[in-house]
Design a protein around this nucleic acid. Structure first.
Lengths: 343, 343
DNA sequence: TAACTATTTGACAGCGCTGTCAATTAGTGA
DNA sequence: TCACTAATTGACAGCGCTGTCAAATAGTTA
């Protein structure tokens, strides 16, 4: 039942040329005489020849494939539009250059470098890199790789396409400040992601610059995509019980913010009259929420697209200096933020 | 600068055994004496040997990789949680069996079979297969493949893991009927997807069974994820202008339904008092909407998971009869549906 | 036409691994 | 200890392609 597989060699024999010439035609090498090319192409079509890409890659050392690694810490990653858009952008950037995506969801005991070391890909794009595994991440610096987030808080030599979270926090705080908010709560996200640290740093710096005191109780870590129960607990501890009560909350992400909105509604509070709520990432969810959600926007698709192009550049040119791109974020103001209530 | 690459041969030489024995150790073949295994493993570790999977695949004919093809018709596919969950399930099913995912977003001139014919994957999972390209889809039947939707309306010999859309429509209509709705509008989705036809068929059959007339004006195709403008146009044509007005709308998907909700709110109508709205797929969006959305739930993660296992089964056992699995859907009732208004 | 350059083509040795199957070694019972 | 079976191991020929580099051919100029 095994179908007869047509190889380069057979095509060459039938066409009466060398394998190398057929190879040139298949790979659209310009240095083949037009007549020869036509003739060989015809034989290829007749025999329905399909090149074996494995053999080709083995011989050439190129796979035209890029590994995309997704860190497990974000179990529900897929339910979050940000990641989907990012992957869409990566995919577009790669496809436009005839590269493919080998997708891998990392779990605890997977190696970040394996895909490359086993020669299955020419390079790696790592999303959601944790900052608590510096050794593993640094192991990637020796191979063509691009991160879509910081892998360490200090400057490092990774190729990186990231968003300006620090600036986004600053914008958000200015916006809330303009509305008269003085006690602003911040849900940073989990410690093992750089965003948590960047947000906290921006928050602290912003307050310092204005000579405002920082109330530590208002700045808390939380898991991404906190569910209703978590959000409820959070509210009860860091909103209802505190005095003075914060008048605004900056959530770690849009899902957490929306769960916050829903819990507040259920508890009989009105947003933004009783409390202003800010999301993060400005995913499609922000405009679907009710009230619609103020949220600083990450250009997720662009981020993925640039990450792809950057990696291809790194693969092709092996730059000696790390390529580090920071994409701007823009605060999109919607209904969930408003003037601070005067308690 | 080229790093010294360690090969099987070198390990064999250093360990003083044959290449084949090293190969056996690497592949965890049971037929290696324990002493030998230990010794070879030690050398492997010392030299930090990394197998070249390309060479291995070329020689063995197995890639341990599966291609996942996503049809382009759904540009925004990635912004829709359903697909993300599906991919998550596929990935889990494959990873558990040490298979990897090669992801490809199809565009007009990509071949569905290429990845397999080029020997880069052992099989294919096709999501969102269109029904208007029967030849291309049937070309896939000769190779190990699984579809996560129907590729044709008639019975066909594809391996398939699908959801019971027909049953879901039936449940939804019963639910609306219980609330007294008699004029129910249906947004089927686009013609080139099987869901549109299945929904329409269920809708018609349901009405026939009850000897109710079918008002063709109420059953309209629409693009998936219809945006605000489209939804507005739809409303103005098929709701406001019709007499009698439909009292409920079954949308093609949750995003369309939510856009519908938002437009209605903006136009000053109240859901479900003025109009009941039903989504489709019961994605995470349904519970985030306000009012929360009644929506028949596809087990998207499970669907992906089963598709993966089915494909691995097909690859391993080449069953002669097509494997066709239909997963149940369950209507999740929330706030967006209620008693029919009496105009 | 000769002499030279530019363009095309081909021979062949790998790329690094696995399948086959025969050879060797270890284990067992009498 | 011997004969026999079971468990281990190894030699070698590919898998199907590309890189290298030399050979052949075509094109150009004087």
């Amino acid at each position: 039942m095994q179908k007869n597989i047509v190889t380069l060699e057979q095509v060459a024999k039938v066409a009466g040329v060398s394998m190398k010439t057929v190879s040139r035609v298949v790979n659209k090498s310009p240095q083949v005489a037009q007549r020869t090319r036509n003739h060989v192409q015809q034989v290829i079509d007749e025999l329905n020849y399909q090149p074996n890409r494995l053999a080709s890659s083995l011989a050439s050392g190129r796979t035209d494939t890029v590994g995309v690694l997704v860190h497990h810490s974000v179990q529900q990653i897929f339910a979050y539009p940000f990641f989907s858009e990012l992957l869409g952008g990566i995919s577009k950037g790669l496809n436009e250059n005839r590269y493919d995506v080998l997708l891998r969801f990392m779990d605890e005991n997977m190696s970040y470098t394996e895909l490359f070391e086993h020669r299955r890909v020419d390079g790696l794009i790592v999303t959601n890199a944790p900052i608590d595994k510096p050794d593993e991440m640094r192991g990637l610096l020796g191979i063509p790789s691009v991160f879509t987030s910081r892998i360490a808080l200090d400057n490092n030599r990774s190729n990186m396409v990231d968003s300006d979270f620090y600036g986004a926090m600053w914008q958000t705080l200015n916006h809330l400040s303009d509305f008269g908010h003085e006690h602003i709560a911040l849900m940073t996200g989990p410690e093992h992601l750089a965003i948590a640290h960047l947000r906290r740093a921006a928050y602290v710096d912003w307050h310092h610059e204005r000579h405002l005191p920082v109330n530590d109780a208002l700045v808390q870590t939380n898991p991404l995509f906190a569910d209703s129960q978590m959000v409820r607990d959070y509210m009860e501890t860091y909103w209802l019980q505190l005095s003075p009560r914060p008048t605004a909350v900056i959530a770690s992400d849009d899902v957490t913010a929306i769960n916050l909105l829903n819990q507040l509604t259920q508890m009989g509070y009105i947003v933004p009259q009783d409390l202003s709520v800010v999301g993060f990432d400005n995913t499609m969810l922000a405009s679907m929420a009710n009230p619609t959600l103020t949220s600083p926007g990450q250009q997720s698709f662009q981020k993925g697209y640039h990450a792809a192009l950057t990696l291809l550049d790194v693969i092709a040119n092996e730059p000696t200096e790390p390529v580090q791109i920071e994409l701007g974020m823009e605060l999109v103001v919607r209904q969930s933020t408003g003037p601070a209530p005067s308690y």
